[in-house]
Write a protein that binds this DNA or RNA. Structure first.
Lengths: 228, 228
DNA sequence: GTCTATATGTAGATAGAC
DNA sequence: GTCTATCTACATATAGAC
């Protein structure tokens, strides 16, 4: 009897290698299709076709549509959060922080993967932009992104003791917006400029803009709206 | 015969007052519903219900779904572009420009209406964020937003003669991203900060952050990625 | 201009064979 | 775990009465 139970447990807990590959293929396909067509615009049939499997398999591995979407966000949000927090800890060990260094720990893991991590990370970047912007995903965003965001806001607030926490949060959200725009609107920058930027410049561009913006927001005199 | 023709033309070109009101009600309803549920998530039935009319009437006034969406974007994009260009011309007449003054001419007409112009302008702000982010609306964005954007980029480029145009375009796109984030992610800023910001601070927050970021991007030495 | 009615397609979900 | 087949619901769009 115990032998039979163990066997059943093993069957539940150790999916075959083939099954795991299929599941990953489905999640990757869903990531691309959701990113390209939006949540409502992507049908399970599109996703199945992209993954090269039958429609029913998508439901089987992904659950219902909304659960599938949440699973995709969570799948990369967790390792990404770890990378950011590890970068912050490592940088802290090296010496005193400034705003640029803190922002770099947040931005760099994301930009580096979106630029060179292949189409999956670029697709994921689009999904993050969607989740951050649409109120529909408020709970998902809070679950996946807020803990790390709070940590970074805390650290930044520590660098500017006089600044109100709302101002720190504002600057942080603008930074995230610029970072997401860098990824999802690179085409528009190219179209408006008429020239291509050199590859690899994205991280430096975001850091330069946002570190200066944040510093002006948090260290300048407060409440003195200029007349211009 | 000419009398009959004239009468027909008049019928085509002078819709009744009631018709115009119905059309506006439909466009307003569509603006809210699209903003709340996204393009694909909003059904013509939802829009009809929101407007208090029959489904077929939405098609009649709005055309097919995609045309209806484009119409909504265009409806406010045109007056908004005029407001921005007029503000720029007026400010120019007052004396020498700096980056902050230029950005203010772009940002202020939008932020002011999104903050105090009622739910329609807030809904429209969300739609602009969608159009700016999703590749699907690339052509619409180019048509509605690019001419004004190019004008502002030209003016900014004139203020920083040494800066590459790609850098100016980058800073401008980050500014637009921050402005849109201010509108569509105010809830998130509040959630992360734990406190509400004072009303009316949005314009000043965006200007302070982006003017400093732009100045650092365009006036600093180029190509010297710091080690931190 | 506005309504009712409906044509036609496709969505998400699942039951059940293998 | 995977596939076939199908259910039910709702989408867009339009024809035609009033």
């Amino acid at each position: 009897m115990s032998g039979r139970l163990t066997k059943e447990k093993q069957r539940q807990r150790a999916p075959s290698k083939r099954s795991l590959e299929t599941r990953a293929r489905i999640l990757d396909a869903a990531e691309r299709v959701f990113a390209q067509r939006g949540f409502e615009g992507a049908s399970l049939r599109d996703i199945a076709a992209e993954a090269g499997v039958q429609v029913a398999l998508v439901s089987h591995h992904g659950g219902h549509k909304e659960a599938l979407f949440a699973r995709i966000i969570q799948r990369r949000a967790e390792p990404l959060a770890s990378l950011r927090l590890e970068a912050l800890a490592a940088r802290r060990a090296q010496g005193p922080l400034d705003a640029r260094a803190v922002l770099r720990c947040f931005v760099e893991p994301y930009i580096a993967r979106a630029e060179t991590g292949g189409p999956q990370w670029l697709a994921y970047a689009r999904l993050v932009a969607m989740v951050s912007a649409e109120p529909r995903w408020r709970a998902l965003a809070a679950e996946c992104f807020d803990p790390t965001a709070r940590t970074f806001i805390d650290v930044l607030a520590g660098l500017y003791p006089g600044a109100p926490r709302a101002a720190v949060a504002t600057g942080f959200v603008y930074t995230v917006a610029a970072m997401l725009a860098e990824i999802t609107s690179a085409w528009r920058i190219g179209a408006l400029a008429g020239t291509d930027r050199p590859g690899g410049a994205a991280l430096e561009a975001v850091l330069r803009f946002c570190a200066a913006g944040l510093d002006a927001t948090l260290s300048g005199p407060r409440g003195n709206a200029s007349a211009t």
